[in-house]
């Protein structure tokens, strides 16, 4: 299995016997939530949908797997979401089968999904690959697999000799996890994790260096830092997380 990274998403295509297009954290309907916070923008749902369609057309997958947080508002479905979600889902369904791993923002999404589209919250193995939104402990069946997860919105800042040369770019983190922390059994294969960046373009993101301490999920804590690897949204390998952290460790000062 080799992942194909799609910077136009960001999205990633996983192919074994089937090809699965994976998109994480779309946060449709964010505009109405922003509006309550004092930010008034027109809905960009159409732009996001056309980006999704582009990814589908560029890869012609057997399945589109949405890795959670398709919608934005919690704890209720907003008017904007109610208005826009059916159209978005129908447009996708016309092109490809879709499934959703519900995220913490997907409250109330069931009524917009058709039978078989909603996957279990604590993750699933499809075609040999594990999938999980990332805010919960994974199901034990994911042990020993590569687990793709969203929820963390990873981004990277890169520094050179003088200063910051790349700021807040979406990034992937690939590494082994500590099964003990995740409360899943240890099997003969190591369990690995691929954190997928957010598709949603307003996401500020979390600096990939700080994810292990971020405390936002069991997954974050379970990452084996020294060997974990960091990739840009087009698949460019940057370095190990351990090296990135030591090169710019806030604790090395003083």
């Amino acid at each position: 299995m080799k992942p194909r990274f799609l910077p136009e998403g960001p999205a990633v295509l996983i192919s074994r016997s089937r090809s699965i297009l994976v998109i994480a954290d779309i946060h449709l309907g964010v505009e109405s939530a922003l509006s309550r916070k004092g930010w008034h923008f027109r809905s960009r749902t159409d732009d996001r949908l056309s980006r999704i369609i582009t990814c589908i057309e560029n890869t012609d997958p057997d399945l589109l797997l949405i890795l959670g947080d398709l919608k934005h508002s919690v704890p209720q479905v907003t008017w904007q979401e109610a208005r826009e979600l059916p159209h978005v889902l129908d447009t996708i369904r016309k092109r490809v089968d879709l499934v959703l791993l519900p995220g913490n923002h997907d409250v109330g999404i069931e009524r917009y999904l058709e039978e078989g589209e909603l996957l279990p919250k604590n993750g699933i193995v499809i075609d040999g690959t594990g999938f999980l939104h990332g805010h919960t402990y994974p199901s034990p069946e994911l042990a020993g697999h590569l687990i793709l997860a969203g929820h963390h919105h990873p981004v990277i800042h890169l520094y050179d000799e003088v200063g910051c040369s790349l700021r807040g770019s979406p990034a992937y983190l690939l590494g082994e996890v500590d099964e003990g922390i995740l409360q899943i059994p240890t099997v003969d294969h190591p369990t690995r994790l691929l954190l997928v960046p957010a598709f949603y373009e307003y996401a500020g993101g979390i600096d990939i260096r700080t994810i292990p301490e971020s405390g936002i999920s069991p997954l974050a804590k379970s990452i084996r830092i020294e060997t974990a690897e960091v990739f840009l949204s087009d698949g460019t390998y940057i370095d190990t997380l351990g090296a990135l952290r030591s090169e710019c460790d806030p604790g090395s000062a003083g």
């Binding site: 004092g38 930010w39 373009e201 996401a203 500020g204 993101g205």
Partner: peptide, 21 residues
């Protein structure tokens, strides 16, 4: 232009990304 309320909270959004819009 009315896009942002006078008292809106900056920490809620990535200005960096927003500015592109």
């Amino acid at each position: 232009f009315g896009a942002i309320d006078a008292d809106a909270d900056y920490e809620k959004i990535s200005l960096y990304r927003l500015s592109e819009h």
